Simulated assay, not measured.
Amino acid sequence: MKRIVVSVSNDLVTDQRVAKICRTLSELDYEILLIGRKNYSPYVLNRTYKTKRMIMLFNRGFLFYAELNIRLFFLLLFTKKDILFSNDLDTLLPNYLVSKIQGKELIFDSHELFSEIPELTHRKFVKSVWQRLEKWILPKLEKVITVSDSIKEHYENLYNIHVTVVRNLPFTQTTDQVSFPFSTKGKTVIIYQGSVNIGRGLELMVETMKLLENHLLVIVGVGDITESLETKVLSSGLEDKVKFMGKILPKDLKHLTPNANIGISLEEDLGLNYRYALPNKVFDYIHAEIPVIVSNLPEMSKLVCSYQIGEIINNRTPKELAKLILRVEKKDYSEALKSAKKELNWSLEKTKLIALLNS
């Protein structure tokens, strides 16, 4: 039985993509060790394969990445394996070095354009370090996967390599609905799920709520701007129109999302990483069979146009967004959503990963 060591820099608990990939590898009779880090969270990790979560001394910045890469290098070096599976650029260096030292096969999964994330926009030196690392290693890799056609084209044009697209699609499954822990009676529920960070269009959405009657915005997730957004809601007197639910595990969230009427994904064009994004939440909305409103960015707009499952915002103003929400309310997207759900699922998408493993 071949052994794959999968490594990622996050806490493992909410990473649906890595969980799906490991589950697929298990079904193919690979022995798996999944390595990540452990945050101080109340969630228990229950998996059918081996996991290792490192408790880090540092949790952000240069010292975090230095510690992660050094510890991961030695852990990978002295761990039995046949294949290394690196997730995102921040775990690639130790995986690449070990693959070269020990002659092991390496698969790289780019969940995003890491060197183009908004957090690096004004940090030119740090950004250049990640770009140099990417430029050094990626042209040498034979098996690279990513989450969208735009990122695939970016890497292929830049580094003259072949990249396989494996989108982060949900499993098709029937789930029982669980009501929100607050009254939604008589209201149109608009849901956002994901990181509560800058550039996600949440400030725009809060402003838009001032123009809507009998509407409720539910924000699921936490992030850098959670506190400032909560302050904005309170100072605007919108606490009855905007509800914060904090962090919810994906297995629990899937029971809540179908209760909403509209899902939003309003990322701003803050560089290539957001521009080429195809967020997990859009697929989660589709599988919950609720229509979506998305930004006019290549991947999201292409998806919405192809399946006719929602609307695209072109003019990012509260007035325009409010009009779009009212338009979506009046239209029936049910058949289009059922059709999209049937096609956009992991059972079909995983065949691309299996083909790459067998090549």
Rank of each mutant, 00 (worst) to 15 (best):
I137A: 05
S128T: 05
H122M: 12
V144P: 01
F108V: 04
S110M: 12
E116V: 02
R132C: 03
E119I: 12
V126R: 14
R132D: 06
E119V: 13
L141I: 02
P118F: 04
E153D: 14
K100D: 10
S115E: 15
V126Y: 11
Y155M: 15
F125T: 13
I101C: 06
L120C: 07
K124Y: 10
L141C: 04
K140S: 01
Y155H: 10
S128N: 12
F125A: 12
I145Q: 02
W130D: 08
E105L: 14
E119Y: 11
L113I: 10
T121Q: 15
I117R: 15
P139H: 04
L120Q: 08
H111M: 07
T121F: 11
S150G: 10
V147Y: 00
F108S: 07
F114A: 12
I101W: 12
Q131E: 14
V147G: 11
V147E: 04
K152C: 07
Y155K: 08
F125C: 03
I117Y: 06
V144D: 04
E105M: 12
V126N: 05
G103F: 03
I145H: 02
L141A: 04
H154A: 13
V147A: 09
I107E: 00
K100Q: 15
K127F: 00
R132F: 02
D149M: 10
D149N: 14
I151W: 07
K152Q: 13
S128R: 02
E116G: 03
F125P: 01
I101K: 14
S148D: 05
K152I: 09
I117N: 08
K152T: 05
L138R: 04
W130N: 10
F125K: 08
D149Y: 11
Q131C: 08
E112N: 02
E134N: 05
E112A: 00
K127Y: 03
